[in-house]
Computed example of a mutant assay.
Amino acid sequence: MSLFLAFLGVSFIVIATPGPDTAITIRNTLLGGRAGGVSTALGIASGQTIWALATSAGIVALLVASEPLFLAVKYAGAAYLVYLGVKALQEALRPSHQAEALAVARPSRRLAAASAFRQGLISDLGNPKMAVFFASLLPQFVPPGGESFITLLGLGAVFAVMTFTWLALYATVVAKAGDFLRQPPIRRVIEGVTGMLLIGLGIRIATEHR
Results as ranks from 00 to 15, higher is better:
residue 48 Q to V: 08
residue 117 F to T: 06
residue 109 R to Q: 14
residue 141 F to K: 05
residue 130 M to G: 15
residue 96 S to K: 04
residue 109 R to C: 07
residue 134 F to V: 12
residue 120 G to V: 02
residue 78 A to I: 00
residue 50 I to R: 01
residue 70 F to W: 12
residue 123 S to H: 11
residue 108 S to P: 00
residue 116 A to M: 01
residue 125 L to N: 06
residue 92 A to T: 01
residue 66 S to F: 10
residue 94 R to K: 15
residue 101 A to V: 06
residue 72 A to R: 02
residue 141 F to M: 04
residue 131 A to E: 04
residue 77 G to W: 04
residue 129 K to V: 04
residue 99 A to P: 06
residue 75 Y to L: 15
residue 81 L to D: 04
residue 139 P to K: 02
residue 54 A to Q: 03
residue 145 G to S: 12
residue 126 G to Y: 04
residue 132 V to I: 15
residue 136 S to K: 06
residue 112 A to E: 14
residue 106 R to N: 14
residue 86 V to T: 07
residue 64 V to W: 10
residue 55 T to N: 07
residue 105 A to F: 05
residue 133 F to Q: 09
residue 137 L to R: 01
residue 104 V to H: 13
residue 80 Y to I: 10
residue 60 V to Y: 03
residue 62 L to Y: 09
residue 57 A to T: 12
residue 142 V to P: 05
residue 73 V to M: 11
residue 122 I to A: 03
residue 85 G to H: 03
residue 82 V to W: 02
residue 124 D to W: 11
residue 100 E to M: 15
residue 65 A to V: 05
residue 58 G to P: 04
residue 72 A to F: 04
residue 124 D to G: 12
residue 79 A to I: 09
residue 87 K to T: 03
residue 109 R to S: 13
residue 135 A to S: 14
residue 79 A to W: 00
residue 89 L to V: 05
residue 134 F to P: 00
residue 139 P to A: 06
residue 97 H to E: 14
residue 145 G to P: 09
residue 73 V to K: 03
residue 87 K to M: 11
residue 59 I to D: 06
residue 131 A to D: 02
residue 88 A to G: 02
residue 142 V to S: 09
residue 133 F to L: 14
residue 122 I to Y: 06
residue 114 A to Q: 14
residue 105 A to L: 06
residue 77 G to I: 07
residue 65 A to K: 15
residue 136 S to M: 11
residue 126 G to L: 06
residue 145 G to R: 09
residue 79 A to H: 05
residue 95 P to E: 09
residue 125 L to T: 00
residue 105 A to H: 04
residue 101 A to N: 10
residue 134 F to M: 13
residue 98 Q to C: 00
residue 124 D to K: 14
residue 79 A to V: 09
residue 139 P to D: 08
residue 55 T to K: 03
residue 121 L to E: 11
residue 79 A to M: 07
residue 60 V to K: 00
residue 101 A to R: 11
residue 94 R to T: 13
residue 62 L to V: 12
residue 78 A to H: 00
residue 118 R to F: 13
residue 57 A to N: 13
residue 92 A to G: 06
residue 136 S to F: 06
residue 92 A to S: 07
residue 135 A to G: 12
residue 139 P to C: 04
residue 107 P to G: 03
residue 102 L to I: 08
residue 60 V to A: 12
residue 121 L to K: 00
residue 133 F to T: 08
residue 57 A to K: 07
residue 47 G to S: 01
residue 137 L to C: 00
residue 63 L to K: 01
residue 139 P to Q: 00
residue 81 L to G: 02
residue 60 V to G: 05
residue 66 S to G: 02
residue 74 K to H: 03
residue 102 L to T: 08
residue 106 R to Y: 09
residue 54 A to R: 02
residue 96 S to Q: 04
residue 87 K to V: 02
residue 75 Y to I: 15
residue 117 F to A: 09
residue 53 L to S: 10
residue 140 Q to R: 09
residue 132 V to T: 08
residue 93 L to W: 05
residue 136 S to Y: 00
residue 134 F to A: 11
residue 63 L to F: 12
residue 95 P to L: 09
residue 119 Q to C: 04
residue 74 K to F: 05
residue 112 A to K: 14
residue 52 A to T: 01
residue 129 K to H: 11
residue 96 S to G: 01
residue 49 T to Q: 12
residue 68 P to A: 12
residue 53 L to Q: 03
residue 79 A to S: 13
residue 104 V to E: 13
residue 122 I to G: 02
residue 56 S to M: 13
residue 120 G to P: 07
